[in-house]
Nucleic acid binder design. Structure first.
Lengths: 244, 244
DNA sequence: GACCATTTGTCCGTATGTATG
DNA sequence: TCATACATACGGACAAATGGT
């Protein structure tokens, strides 16, 4: 253990590689016994780098609010949660969290009526060019940003969904408000990618950060598509679970 | 579009950020019309950097075999596939690929008999310390590495599974060989993270590359756990699909 | 209080990598 | 290819804070 875990001259600074590994180790529970990160000198030895380089990594993690350094004592772990999102036929953002967070919120960032692109039309079972409503939303757990989603809805059937979402702060409540009491998740596609500059800002991420991307289609109980969405989750804050 | 897509002084070199974005643009089909990447000067303008910096990014992509620069013509796209893996109750690596690739192979890198850790024992329904067999495998599609997996099996029930896997090049065939004709996927946990140095080497990735990680548990038809595995997929080569 | 080992914080200088023009 | 500016990484030395004896 602890040999050549990081690589040089690859376009990714050593301190960033080390920060990513320590963040992973924290969220995987590697330091649960002490609640602290090992001393800088120990980490430097483990990663085969200078202590200064480790300090840069820890400074970045402190900036993210994950650790807090205390002179004379060590570097304490402040946060280590990773929210679990079950992906099932009844997937709901808020309910899925359950008791993992106290306060769940969905904020409406933007709303627009537009013509469906070929891809959106295909997913919603519309003809390209038909009107759809697009919602840009930000979801938070205990005031911490968790995901940025772009959702499309058939405009005719769900007129006013933006206002309903803003009021209820959830898709489920907005649907209910518009006369759709229940819906189901039909398909989900999962990929991963680097965060765009815009998503980095909204999700309070740093460059090099990873997104888990879920492209999802929901239907009503008759199987008619009601929503297509592309959700970008901060990968170090969540995991998906699929139960078969 | 095209403004401030990359950030400075973040521990990730601009040329690497740009290489990552172009790689994703290619695999998402953004340049399908021409089959080429835009000219270096155009990219430099789009990303707001010097042409030298774009050249560094394209050189890295050429090194990966994704693009090929031709003097006087431009930079041609050599490869852009993204394999789809359905995650269902009957998830199988080889069959899941279907017609997306011609040749599917599973290579056995290492085999070991060891005592189950607390986590492995929990997943396999064993007592910690009971014997398990661990297989390290590399899966390829058309000779291109797709995923690195670490799998654990109850040692008593599946003695000799390493040899069976080496011969059949698939878990399904190895199970059949050992008298288990059928099995089902019980749960799958999906996360994303940066690649370790070892996975980078096996999957022919570059630093900063992203892994889609699937922790999966398979059972026999009676619901008895037969396999727990942690598979790391090159995120820019695959996507997962969940059908509900 | 004094003393100690441990750990983080700060400063110096130097070499190399990254990015621009 | 050259020159320039800044970020990254290293090595060493010492200061400051903490928790113990």
């Amino acid at each position: 253990m602890g040999l050549k875990q990081v690589q040089r001259q690859t376009g990714v600074a050593l301190w960033r590689q080390i920060a990513d590994r320590i963040r992973e180790a924290i969220s995987s529970g590697a330091y649960d016994e002490t609640g602290m990160v090992p001393p800088e000198t120990v980490l430097a030895l483990q990663f085969g780098v200078n202590r200064h380089t480790v300090r840069s990594a820890l400074a970045a993690l402190a900036q993210e609010g994950i650790v807090r350094a205390v002179q004379g004592r060590g570097t304490l772990i402040e946060r280590k949660e990773r929210l679990n999102f079950p992906i099932t036929r009844r997937t709901r953002f808020t309910a899925g969290i359950g008791d993992q967070a106290r306060e769940m919120r969905g904020l409406l960032l933007d709303e627009a009526k537009e013509e469906a692109s070929a891809e959106i039309a295909r997913w919603l079972g519309l003809k390209p060019g038909e009107q759809v409503i697009r919602l840009e939303t930000l979801r938070q757990a205990d005031k911490r940003p968790v995901s940025r989603a772009t959702s499309w809805f058939p405009a005719e059937r769900f007129a006013g969904i933006g206002e309903a979402y803003r009021a209820g702060e959830s898709i489920t409540k907005a649907f209910a408000e518009l006369g759709l009491p229940d819906y189901v998740r039909a398909t989900t596609e999962v990929t991963a990618a680097h965060a765009s500059a815009a998503d980095m800002a909204d999700l309070e991420l740093t460059p090099g950060a990873i997104l888990l991307i879920a492209k999802a289609m929901n239907t009503d109980l008759e199987g008619v598509p009601v929503q297509y969405s592309i959700s970008r989750f901060a990968a170090d804050r969540v995991q998906f679970t699929i139960e078969n």
